[in-house]
């Protein structure tokens, strides 16, 4: 699978000259845990991913002008939240000696999400998949940061996860409404999930996925509007080696 395959990816967003944009995880600076640059690189990467989320939400607003006003209001709010998250990560890595553009970045989320032509599909991928998966990772991150005595990072994560829960929650609510309004959306979502999964594998490769496993954040997922059944299914899947 090719990380530039046009059947899997749309065009990327524009970036200024500070950024080296790559297409695959293996091309990034992937420092091992404990390496002196690992945390700063991670924070820099997260900053760019928040910008990707902002850009995806912005595209959802401009690409679907006819959608219900209530969901558009949620998308507009998400734009502001993701912009704020990017600033949060930037503030922290600059405080720790990093500079914008210091490390290569990936824009795979934007490139995967924006190729789909229905809002239901985009919400299913961006909010209900990528961001929901983020809840699990952030919860582990909070615990790890506290254990490491990095309370500044733990505070950042706690603020971030509260916002992300809201983003997943509105997506869960609106996907249900959009499917009720037009059951064909269910098929669009299923097709999008399959394509997004292939695209994700093309970007991450075996190297980016092997050994990466978080337990499901059950409480966060419940607050985010997943049903108990959905949470248990996810938790069981994620507990498998």
């Amino acid at each position: 699978m090719d990380a530039s395959d046009p059947s899997l990816f749309g065009h990327g967003p524009n970036r200024d000259g500070r950024f080296a944009v790559k297409e695959r995880w293996i091309e990034c600076a992937n420092f091992p845990v404990g390496h002196p640059a690992q945390v700063v690189e991670f924070l820099h990467r997260q900053m760019n991913e928040e910008v990707d989320s902002l850009e995806s939400s912005a595209r959802n607003l401009s690409d679907f002008p006819g959608e219900d006003w209530e969901v558009r209001l949620h998308l507009a709010r998400q734009c502001a939240d993701e912009a704020r998250h990017a600033r949060m990560f930037r503030r922290l890595f600059e405080k720790r000696g990093g500079t914008v553009g210091q490390y290569p970045v990936l824009n795979f989320q934007y490139r995967i999400i924006t190729q789909f032509d229905s809002l239901a599909a985009r919400l299913a991928i961006q909010n209900r998949s990528f961001e929901a998966g983020g809840l699990d990772a952030i919860t582990v991150g909070i615990e790890q940061a506290r254990q490491d005595g990095d309370f500044e990072l733990a505070d950042l994560y706690e603020a971030q996860i509260a916002d992300e829960i809201s983003h997943v929650r509105f997506a869960n609510e609106w996907i249900r409404k959009l499917v009720e309004k037009n059951p064909a959306n269910l098929l669009r979502i299923a097709q999008a999930m399959k394509t997004a999964s292939q695209a994700f594998e093309a970007v991450m490769g075996r190297e980016g996925i092997e050994g990466v496993n978080y337990p499901a954040d059950k409480q966060g997922r419940l607050e985010a509007g997943f049903t108990r059944e959905e949470v248990e299914i996810t938790a069981n899947l994620m507990s498998r080696p």
């Binding site: 910008v51 902002l54 850009e55 912005a58 734009c79 502001a80 993701e82 912009a83 600033r87």
Partner: peptide, 9 residues
């Protein structure tokens, strides 16, 4: 981008 994101809201 970050300023526009806030102003969208």
């Amino acid at each position: 981008k970050l300023m526009l994101g806030e102003h969208i809201w």
